[in-house]
């Protein structure tokens, strides 16, 4: 037996499926974050059913539907962007990514107007403490009209849940802009599209969460 010493060059190993699986795990943590909100919503809704239904009537179903379709469309353009890159068409992938970013921005702008209307009606940051003390939203308008506790809870949850969702949209938009630059530079290319794929998965998750937010806030009034 002679001892052999040989240097074996191990090629850089990149496990794309493993990376994707890890990313899915991250997505589940996001899912559980929102699941906690949905759980709180479900419990309070069962306790304050009448108030929740009354409060939900003040949300505009038309705007909600419009935003749902915008997000669904952005998911479609995201899929097409990835398909284009996989097919070696980087320029087309960038065009579809531009569409996705534009649609995401449109969602935020519409949401912003919607929130603005709620601010005007002093529905933001109403506190139960204010109600007990005979005062309205202390932070915005001391003379605001009083709401029953159930409605305060509804609007509190509405702002927290749609706000957290909007925050995810903002993160997704920033990520897409970075990916866009990387495609331009060529570091994301038809042979290395994993980053765009994961960005897409994240964006679809944001869409997925909205699919459940939409009926619970805009439809069951």
């Amino acid at each position: 037996m002679t001892e052999q010493t040989a240097t074996v060059e191990i090629p850089h190993h990149h496990d794309e499926t493993g990376t994707r699986l890890g990313f899915w795990l991250f997505l589940y943590t996001e899912l559980f974050l929102f699941a906690a909100f949905f759980l709180i919503y479900a419990v309070y809704r069962s306790n304050y059913l009448v108030e929740f239904r009354t409060a939900a009537e003040s949300l505009n179903t038309g705007i909600g539907t419009q935003n749902t379709i915008i997000l669904l469309a952005s998911s479609l353009t995201m899929v097409l962007s990835l398909n284009a890159l996989k097919a070696g068409k980087a320029r087309m992938a960038k065009t579809f990514l531009q569409f996705t970013i534009t649609l995401g921005l449109a969602f935020l702008v519409i949401k912003g107007f919607e929130w603005g209307a709620k601010f005007d009606h002093h529905l933001f940051l109403q506190t139960t403490k204010g109600i007990a003390a005979g005062e309205g939203s202390l932070l915005l308008n001391p003379s605001a009209e009083m709401l029953p506790v159930g409605q305060v809870l509804f609007f509190g949850l509405y702002f927290i849940m749609t706000g957290t969702h909007a925050l995810h949209i903002v993160i997704g938009l920033i990520w897409m802009i970075i990916v866009y630059v990387w495609i331009s530079k060529g570091s994301i290319n038809p042979d290395n599209y994993g980053t765009l794929e994961r960005c897409g998965l994240y964006w679809h998750l944001v869409d997925l969460i909205w699919i459940f937010l939409f009926p619970l806030y805009y439809l069951v009034a």
């Binding site: 998911s75 479609l76 995201m78 899929v79 897409g200 998965l201 679809h204 998750l205 869409d207 997925l208 699919i211 459940f212 939409f214 009926p215």
Partner: peptide
């Protein structure tokens, strides 16, 4: 209906 939509997104978009 939301669950059907979610299943479609998970299956085909994701």
């Amino acid at each position: 209906v939301a669950s059907i939509k979610a299943a479609l997104v998970l299956t085909y978009f994701m």
